[in-house]
């Protein structure tokens, strides 16, 4: 689809236009910095395992309550310190961070798939199907998902990361559904879509070959938002002590730190490092979402360009 790159370029004033393939809206600083932040955390688990013994994330494998190495009293054997049940913080972070991502990706993907199906159905069929889907998503979005998830986790005692992802996905579909429905409604009346339909393209082709490429930045932005929301929900559940308890996760580490009053005891590294990793993850995803918004909406790309 040539329209994808042609549209933003046309929207810019003449002197700015450079015929250069690096002049793509996809190459904006926010998107790239965000991707680097997110990927570096996501890959740390893969690469980290080669340099650091991840078994140190288990209880009792290290001395207790050690501060980080760069603080008096710390050792380089445990660069980021240890907590009160003898887990090495570095190993905890290296196992926890990728796990959070996995939950986020699984939940957001399921949510997006449901959203694509329902959004296209609503946008294309219209009528009572549209009304039903819209009402359902409006009602569903009003229910405080985290509260319901907390209750579910309280009943399902031994919860696995995958189960949690699926449960979170149950609340991740109304956003994409609304977005895709709105997009389908606006795109449906465009000339090239009518053209495609008149040319005899079937609905499936129209949706996936004609519409999807144009919706891509919107979908990607919504997907990123959902990954972030899912990680937030899982970290929230873990931080209440309701997540998977066997494997260390970032939220669970914060839960234990809070339970052991790490804040009062001055053990800042115990909650501080998970905080930092989560902050990098969320800020990275946030930047990606803003960057994608700018891809989707050329008007957002800086005000100076206008007039």
């Amino acid at each position: 689809m040539a329209t994808l790159t042609a549209e933003p370029v046309a929207a810019r004033p003449a002197p700015q236009v450079r015929v250069n393939r690096w002049d793509s809206p996809w190459l904006n600083a926010k998107l790239i910095i965000g991707l680097i932040m997110v990927l570096s955390v996501a890959l740390s688990g893969v690469v980290g395992g080669m340099f650091w013994d991840l078994r140190l994330a288990r209880v009792g494998t290290s001395p207790q309550d050690l501060p980080p190495a760069f603080v008096p009293g710390g050792t380089w054997a445990h660069p980021l310190g240890t907590e009160n049940s003898g887990r090495d913080m570095l190993a905890v972070l290296l196992t926890g961070a990728p796990r959070s991502f996995r939950i986020g990706l699984i939940a957001a993907t399921i949510g997006l798939l449901i959203g694509v199906v329902l959004g296209c159905l609503a946008g294309f069929l219209g009528g009572w199907v549209d009304r039903l889907i819209l009402i359902a998503s409006d009602a569903w979005i009003t229910i405080p998902s985290l509260v319901v998830l907390i209750v579910i986790s309280a009943f399902v005692r031994q919860i696995s990361a995958e189960t949690m992802a699926v449960l979170i996905a149950m609340f991740a579909w109304p956003g994409p559904t609304r977005l895709i429905r709105a997009q389908v409604l606006t795109l449906r009346e465009r000339g090239y879509i009518r053209m495609a339909r008149l040319s005899g393209a079937n609905t499936f082709d129209v949706i996936f070959r004609e519409m999807m490429p144009n919706m891509l930045p919107y979908i990607a932005a919504s997907f990123t938002g959902n990954v972030s929301g899912a990680i937030l929900a899982s970290a929230g559940l873990e931080a209440l002590g309701l997540g998977p308890t066997r494997i260390p996760t970032l939220g669970m580490t914060i839960f234990y730190a809070n339970q052991a009053s790490a804040v009062i005891r001055g053990m800042w590294w115990w909650w501080g490092f998970p905080f930092l990793v989560l902050a990098i993850i969320f800020s990275g995803l946030f930047l990606i979402a803003i960057g994608l918004d700018e891809v989707a909406n050329p008007r957002l790309r800086g005000l100076q360009v206008k007039q």
Partner: peptide, 9 residues
């Protein structure tokens, strides 16, 4: 973009 409860800590 930081979760409110962690920021609370």
């Amino acid at each position: 973009s930081i979760p409110p409860f962690i920021f609370g800590l």
